[in-house]
Design a binder for these strands. Structure first.
Lengths: 132, 132
DNA sequence: TTATATCCGATAATTTTAGTCGGATATATT
DNA sequence: AATATATCCGACTAAAATTATCGGATATAA
């Protein structure tokens, strides 16, 4: 409950790794996977996904890899989590109403308050707050 | 990602339900399950669990059921979540170090900061903030 | 005595998350 | 041009977590 997924963790690890190097230097999937003991194939997916979201940039071919493209201090953690994992919320009913309880639910409003607190907390932090 | 479990939701729904009645009145599993469209058996488990944690009190036999035992304004949400679901944390590594990455992990400290923010946020709210 | 309720361990089903495989495309180097 | 190394990407499988079910026990009010 209330956990980050590995995908998000791998994404953050990769960004921090890239940020530790000079701006134009390139990191390959294999390099990152080996360094942090992450399965290559799944890391590849994650990096491709971030590339599609314009967080990083892919360079094809041998000696290729990825480098940071976006301003990480301009991406807050809600944006980041949603780009990597999809919609965020303590309960599904805040973005997808398919719930058997919803008609009688007596806690939706109070939980939504907490949800807002959580969202605001994550929104107040940027990706760079983690990768720096 | 970052969701409450149904168990926690069922627990909160039940508490709010009980709190809406006079202090000594008893709510049976079946009554709550029917009212909120929750599977009886799993709700039974959840209520039994809360009884064991002394949040509610079980009354056996026919016309039995449960009623609130603890002071809900004295239980903060971290305590409550941990009583119902076990240890809380954005990543397992904050309470169970069995992680392939831990030796090389470059984001553990920053994520722990966020984790603390989240924990503090939940600690600042009581169960009663939801059930009232 | 009976009916109705909690109690509780074992197990099954479902959903989500994590990881694998196969083969395509792009490009630097030789 | 050939080759090696990298990304790209859909389909698939596996594992783990969550959710739900089953069977039968115990407690007690009526």
């Amino acid at each position: 409950m209330l956990k980050l997924t590995r995908k998000v963790e791998y994404a953050l690890i990769s960004l921090r790794h890239m940020q530790g190097k000079s701006t134009d230097s390139i990191s390959s999937t294999k390099e990152i996977a080996n360094h942090y003991n992450i399965p290559v194939e799944i890391l590849a997916k994650t990096l491709q996904h971030m590339a599609k979201e314009n967080i990083i940039e892919a360079i094809n071919g041998p000696r290729g890899g990825y480098r940071i493209k976006a301003k990480l201090n301009k991406i807050n953690l809600v944006e980041f989590f949603e780009k990597v994992e999809g919609p965020l919320g303590l309960s599904d009913c805040f973005y997808d109403a398919n719930c058997m309880q919803i008609e009688f639910c007596n806690i939706r409003t109070p939980i939504q308050r907490i949800n807002n607190n959580m969202i605001n907390m994550f929104r107040s932090m940027s990706v760079q707050d983690i990768t720096n």
